[in-house]
Nucleic acid binder design. Structure first.
Length: 831
DNA sequence: AGCACGCCGACT
DNA sequence: GTCGGCGTGCTC
C-alpha cells in the first residue's frame, strides 16, 4: 500500500458500482484519466450497461485492480463532485439485501428517489453524412423525409408514425444503411424550482445614481413608475445592499408593472433579471426551543426513557391510547437535536398526512423535513439533499425514509411500531422499517424508541427478555378516562329479531343520543366497498374475478364490481350477467353500505366516509379529517384508516360494526392484529373531557381476544398469546421465512412447491418446513400461488447458513428445465 | 429485470 | 421466401 501510493497517480482507476438491477454482484468500470481524481465512494456515475441501456450507478469501491477476465467499460459521466450516498447507507443497503434475501440494486432502487436516477431513452436522428439514397425503399424514403422535418424521434414516436408495434427491425435496417444514427438521450429528472427576480444593475446602487436615473426617465412615466415601484420594495437610499437580492418578478407584475416596460429597462441595461433556486417547501416558523409542558406522568415517562437509554439501545414505550405520547416524543427530540445529532421519526403512511405533523411543525418549523409517498420526486430529492447538507436535522417520514443519507443519527422514533405497514410487501426489498431502524441505529450508535399503545408481540417479548428497555404509561392525558367498552351479542339480537339492518338497538340508541347531544360518532368496519359480493337469486351466479380466486366487491357509488387484489373493475347495473335477472342480492357489508344504511336510519345526520376509495385524491384525506374535526360531520364511517393516530376531541362513541371477521381470520397473527385494531379504534373515543363509550357487535362475546380488549388488558393478552405462539412454534420463538411459488399452471406450481419443500426438509427437518399450501387467495392475476413456510428457532438455527441453503435450493429448483417458468418469492419475517 | 440474439410457423 | 413469435442467456 505504502509503496504503491507513489505510482497510484499513474495507475488506471476502476470503480465497482451498484446498478439498479436485480443481479447479485457489483460491476467494474474503468474511470477515464481526467475523472480519476474525482471519483469517490457514494457518487453517482452514468454507465452503459449491456448494449443499449444507460443507467445511473453508485460507486461502492474505488480501486486499481483491472478485472482479469473481461475488458471493463469506461464510465460515461460522473454526476457528483460530492457523494450523495453515504458509506453508512451503502453498508445499510447491503445489510438489507442480505437479510431480506434480495439484490443490492433492488434496495438502491427503493432507496434513491427517482429524481436522483437518470434514465435514458434511445432516439434516432437523420445521418447528415448519408449519401446513398438509392439503397432505400420508397417507404423508407417517405419516413426519412419525415425524420428530416423533426429534430429526432423516440422509438415510440417512430412506432406511432409508422403505425407499427415493433420498430426495431425498421430502425436496424436504416442504421445498417447508414441513413440514421441512434443515440441515447439522458433525462435528468430533478428540476430545481426557480424564482425569477429583478434587480437594478450594480452601477445604480448608490442614492445619487438612483436619483439621477429617475430624473433621466422623466419622459416615460411607465418606466419611472416601475423604478419607483422597485424602490418601494428595495429602499436603495437606505439599504443599498438589499439590491443584490432583488424583487420577485411576480410581485412587480401584481403591482401593475407591464412586461413591456420591464423589457425596455432590461434592454437599456438598467434592470437585470436573475434566477434563484429556491426550496419547494414553504418556510414555516417554528420554535424549536419551546418548552413542552408535560404532566407529571409524562415527565416521569420521559425521564425514564432517557434513563433506560443509558444501558439499552432500544426502548419500548408502551403508552395507552390518549396518554399523550407526542409531547414526550417532542421533549426527547428537542434534547437529541440540542446535542447536535440527527433525529428520524417514523410513522405509518396514513398517520403521517395528519395532525401529528402539524403539531411537530408548530415546534420545529422548517428545520424539520417531511418525507412522504404523496410527495413529488423533486420534493423528495430536496429532502435527500437537505439531509445530506445539514439543512434538515430532523425528518418525519414513512418507512422508506429509513434510507435517507443520515450520518449522525442520535435517535430514531418508530411510532405505532406494531403497524404492519412498516413491512414492505410487494417489490423487493421486503424489509421491515422498524427492524432496519434498529440495525441502522446500532451502526450509527443511535437510540431507538418504539412507541405503541398495543406493542407487537415481538417487541414486547424483547422487552420482557430485557433486550429492550420498557417504559409504560398507563394514564390518559388531562382528565380523560379510558372509554367504557361493551360487547353486544348480535346472535341473541338476531334471534330476537331486534336488529335493524344488522345494527343492534343498543348501538342505534347510543348514536341517536349522541346526535342529540351534538357529540360525534365513529363507526368502524374493516371492509371497503358496498358489499363483498353480488349473488343472483335466480341462477345463483356470484360475481368473481376471472384473474383471481376472489369475489368481486360491489361498489355502489361507482356502479362497479372491483377486484381488490388485481384492481380489475367492470361496471354493473346489479343485473345478473348470466340469466339477466334483476333479482340480484348484495351479500355482506362494506363501509359504503353502512354509510347508506345510516343515512336511511338517521336522515338528519351528516355522515362522512373514510376509506381507500374516498381518500385517493391528493387532499381528500385532509378534507375529511378537517370536516370531522370542525364538527360539521356527526358520524364518520371508516376502515382501519380511522384507527391510525387520529385525535378528535368530540368523539364520545365508537361502534365496531362486526368484530367477527377479524378475530376468526385464518392466520397466526390474526389475534394480535384484531386486538391491536379494536383497541386502537376504541382509543379514538373519549380523548378529552367527554367520556367515551365503545360498542362492539359480535357473534362470539366470550372470545378470548374481546375479553382482553374490554378489560384494557394488553399484558394479559400478550401472555395468553405467547402461550399460543409457543405451542405452534410461531414468532417470537421462531423466525418465519415465507416462500411463495407462482405459476400460470396450477399443477406445475404445486409440483415445484412440493419439490422445494421436500428439498428443504432434508436438511431442516420436516417440523421446520410447513406446506406447501394453497395461498389464502390461491390465484392472483391468473397465477396460482403456493406457500412454503420455514419456522426457524431463533436460538437453535443459524439463520445465515439457512438462508444460503435456501438460496441454493431455489436456484436448484428453477434451473430444472421443467420449472423454468415458475417464480419464487422469498419474504423474510413475513407479517 | 431488460434486451439482444436465435431459431421455427403464417403471411405479403 | 420474410415477418415476427417468444425461448435463453448475458449484462462489467
Amino acid at each position: 500500500m505504502r509503496q504503491e501510493l507513489g505510482d497510484s497517480m499513474e495507475q488506471t482507476v476502476f470503480v465497482d458500482v451498484v446498478l439498479p438491477v436485480p443481479i447479485p454482484q457489483l460491476f467494474t468500470y474503468r474511470v477515464p484519466r481526467e475523472l480519476s481524481e474525482y471519483v469517490q465512494v457514494g457518487s453517482r456515475v452514468v454507465v452503459e450497461f449491456g448494449k443499449s441501456r444507460v443507467l445511473t450507478a453508485i460507486i461502492a469501491v474505488v480501486h486499481h485492480n483491472p478485472p482479469p477476465k473481461y475488458q471493463a467499460k469506461y464510465i460515461l459521466e460522473l454526476l457528483d463532485q460530492i457523494p450523495v450516498v453515504t458509506p453508512s447507507q451503502l453498508w445499510l443497503f447491503s445489510w438489507v439485501a442480505e437479510y431480506y434475501m434480495c439484490h443490492i440494486g433492488e434496495v438502491m432502487n427503493i432507496a434513491l428517489p427517482a429524481g436522483l436516477k437518470i434514465s435514458s431513452q434511445s432516439k434516432i436522428q437523420y445521418n447528415p453524412d448519408f449519401n446513398n439514397p438509392e439503397l432505400l425503399s420508397s417507404e423508407e424514403n417517405t419516413f426519412l423525409e419525415f425524420l428530416l422535418t423533426q429534430d429526432s424521434l423516440t422509438y415510440d414516436e417512430v412506432g406511432r408514425y409508422l403505425e407499427k408495434k415493433d420498430v426495431n427491425k425498421v430502425i436496424k435496417d436504416l442504421v445498417a444503411k447508414h441513413a440514421i444514427i441512434v443515440f441515447e438521450e439522458l433525462k435528468y429528472k430533478y428540476k430545481p424550482k426557480i424564482l425569477k427576480k429583478i434587480r437594478l444593475k450594480r452601477v445604480y446602487e448608490g442614492s445619487e445614481e438612483v436619483l439621477q436615473l429617475i430624473d433621466s426617465l422623466e419622459k416615460s412615466t411607465k418606466q419611472q413608475e416601475l423604478i419607483l415601484e422597485y424602490l418601494s420594495h428595495i429602499p436603495i437610499q437606505d439599504l443599498p445592499e438589499k439590491n443584490k437580492a432583488g424583487v420577485e418578478k411576480t410581485k412587480l407584475r401584481e403591482a401593475g408593472v407591464s412586461d413591456s416596460s420591464l423589457k425596455t429597462l432590461k434592454d437599456k441595461g438598467i434592470l437585470e433579471e436573475i434566477e434563484v433556486v429556491i426550496s419547494r417547501f414553504e418556510e414555516s416558523a417554528g420554535n424549536p426551543n419551546k418548552v413542552i409542558e408535560l404532566s407529571d406522568a409524562q415527565r416521569e415517562a420521559s425521564n425514564s426513557i432517557m434513563e433506560k437509554f443509558q444501558e439499552k439501545q432500544v426502548v419500548l414505550f408502551h403508552g395507552i391510547t390518549g396518554s399523550g405520547k407526542t409531547e414526550i416524543y417532542i421533549d426527547l427530540i428537542q434534547q437529541v437535536l440540542a446535542s447536535g445529532s440527527q433525529v428520524l421519526f417514523l410513522l405509518p403512511e396514513i398517520a403521517l398526512t395528519t395532525q401529528i405533523v402539524t403539531r411537530l411543525k408548530r415546534v420545529f418549523g422548517s428545520s424539520m423535513a417531511v418525507y412522504h409517498s404523496k410527495f413529488s420526486d423533486n420534493e423528495r430529492v430536496e429532502v435527500w439533499r437537505g439531509v445530506l447538507d445539514g439543512t434538515y436535522q430532523f425528518v418525519v417520514g414513512v418507512r422508506s425514509s429509513i434510507f435517507l443519507p443520515f450520518d449522525n443519527l442520535g435517535l430514531i422514533i418508530v411510532d405505532e411500531e406494531h403497524e404492519s405497514s412498516y413491512k414492505q410487501f410487494d417489490p423487493a426489498p421486503r424489509y421491515h422499517a422498524r427492524d432496519v431502524a434498529i440495525m441502522l441505529a446500532i451502526k450509527q450508535h443511535a437510540k431507538v424508541l418504539l412507541g405503541s399503545a398495543t406493542p407487537s408481540i415481538e417487541s414486547f417479548f424483547q422487552a420482557k427478555a430485557n433486550k429492550y428497555g420498557l417504559v409504560s404509561l398507563n394514564v390518559r392525558f388531562g382528565n380523560a378516562q379510558l372509554p367504557e367498552i361493551r360487547l353486544i351479542d348480535v346472535k341473541k339480537d338476531r334471534k330476537e329479531k331486534t336488529l335493524v339492518k344488522d345494527f343492534s338497538q343498543l348501538l342505534l340508541n347510543e348514536i341517536s343520543s349522541n346526535l342529540q347531544n351534538k357529540e360525534q360518532t365513529i363507526i368502524f368496519q374493516n371492509r371497503r366497498g358496498y358489499a363483498p359480493y353480488l349473488n343472483c337469486q335466480e341462477c345463483n351466479w356470484i360475481g368473481q374475478c376471472d384473474q383471481c380466486a376472489v369475489t368481486l366487491t360491489y361498489h355502489m357509488q361507482s356502479q362497479q364490481l372491483i377486484c381488490h387484489y388485481c384492481g380489475h373493475r367492470e361496471s354493473t347495473r346489479k343485473t345478473c350477467p348470466d340469466c339477466g335477472s334483476t333479482n340480484v342480492k348484495s351479500v355482506g357489508v362494506g363501509t359504503e353500505k353502512i354509510e347508506d344504511d345510516l343515512h336511511e336510519i338517521f336522515p338528519e345526520a351528516v355522515i362522512s366516509r373514510m376509506d381507500l376509495d374516498t381518500t385517493r385524491a391528493k387532499n381528500a384525506l385532509q378534507n375529511i379529517i378537517g370536516d370531522f374535526e370542525s364538527g360539521e360531520v356527526d358520524i364518520l364511517v371508516g376502515t382501519q384508516m380511522i384507527s391510525k393516530g387520529l385525535d378528535f376531541d368530540r368523539v364520545s362513541l365508537v361502534g365496531i360494526y362486526n368484530a367477527d371477521k377479524m378475530i376468526h381470520f385464518p392466520d397466526f397473527r390474526a389475534a394480535e392484529r384484531a386486538f391491536q385494531l379494536i383497541t386502537q379504534v376504541s382509543g379514538r373515543a373519549g380523548r378529552r373531557e367527554i367520556p367515551g363509550k365503545v360498542l362492539i357487535q359480535t357473534g362470539s362475546p366470550q372470545n378470548r381476544i374481546l375479553q382482553f380488549v374490554i378489560n384494557n388488558d394488553y399484558v394479559g393478552f400478550y401472555e395468553s398469546e405467547l402461550i399460543e405462539r409457543e405451542g405452534y412454534s410461531y414468532p417470537p420463538f421462531t423466525r418465519i421465512i415465507e416462500i411463495t411459488v407462482k405459476d400460470v399452471d396450477q399443477t406445475l406450481a404445486h409440483q415445484a412447491a412440493n419439490k422445494l419443500a421436500e428439498a428443504l426438509s432434508i436438511r431442516l427437518g420436516r417440523e421446520r418446513v410447513k406446506g406447501p399450501e394453497k395461498a389464502l387467495v390461491e390465484r392472483i392475476r391468473n397465477k396460482f400461488l403456493f406457500e412454503v413456510w420455514l419456522k426457524l428457532e431463533k436460538d437453535k438455527m443459524n439463520i445465515q447458513a439457512t438462508k444460503e441453503y435456501l438460496k441454493k435450493e431455489i436456484v436448484n429448483l428453477v434451473t430444472d428445465k421443467k420449472f423454468k417458468s415458475v417464480q419464487v418469492i422469498v419474504n423474510v419475517d413475513a407479517v
